[in-house]
Amino acid sequence: MTCKEIEEKIAAYQEGMLSPEERKLVDDHLVTCPKCSSALADLEKAIAIIEGLPEIEPPPWFTQKIMAQVREEAPEKGSILKRLFYPFHVKIPIEALATLCVVALGLYAYKTSGPEIKTYQTPPPATIESPSKDSTVDRQKEEIKDLRLSETKIDEENFDRKEPHVKPPVQTEARRPSSGLVMEQKAEAPVATGVAPPAAAPLIAKEKDVSVSTDNERKQEREKKVFQLAPGHRKAEVQIPASITITLSVENIFSASTDAENLLRESGFVVTRKEYRDGIQTLTVHCPAQKLSVLLNRLQAIGYLKDPGITEETTDGNVQVHIRIISR
């Protein structure tokens, strides 16, 4: 080993970190080399001096001074709020509990006040099957029964599929007293009137698209749609807009108009307005909602009746029916 190599290894040798083989090589060199052994001795002496440096003493006030600063930084022990909100030095437990309490209170308030809100905001429609002594409802029942017997049979499956949409909430029905039916029906009238104009619009638009057809199947389909009134009354009810327009397609407008007037008169309907414009004869009739289905049924004897677009929702009261008689 050369002196240069010894110089590189001398610190590790002095720290006792050389392998036994390397250590022996250094030992052998140090015996024969006074320069390297002197360097090692100097290093060991320097380390001894460094290690021998005396420890300095802290000033007597040192602990008190440090602790005074520490106590200033320390949180106050008696703070009730801090203890409440930091029981485990985290905010989570109490705040989570508070959140749960708020949610539980909210749910409770919603559940307790929920049914009342439902009654006023979305009152359930009058049900024909509901026990009621009201004569209007009884009459309606009879008419619907007649219609059901005389007209097209409605597919039961179709009806069942539509039922959930129409069916009022069971809970609300059960809670409502039977005497409240009439009052609620009256309250619904303005709502139905407000809905009427948008319901009539698609009907007119649809007329243009409908091609004239005398096909029996197609006719039956139309009739089914018109008289979906009947099954609708079984569990739910049919809502009729306060003003509807129906189109009657005939061979001769004038003879059909006369026939229609006579037929309406015989049926007890009053024609309030009669107008002829642009090849269309329009008869306006005031009709009780319950008799609307009868009216529609009888008009079919005169001509082809286009879909009046009656929806399966409910209302009550008189309906203004505009019968547009057009040439085929």
């Binding site: 440096l53 420890e55 300095i56 003493e57 802290p58 000033p59 040192f62 602990t63 001074k65 440090i66 600063q69 520490v70 930084e73």
Partner: peptide, 28 residues
């Protein structure tokens, strides 16, 4: 640990006053 930390700070800076200051700040 104050003495040990003070000695280390003193050997690092070579200044007693600075060492005291450093040690206080370190404990804080």
């Amino acid at each position: 640990y104050q003495k040990k930390m003070l000695n280390m700070a003193y050997r690092m800076t070579g200044d007693y006053e600075e060492a005291c200051e450093i040690t206080q700040e370190a404990f804080l």
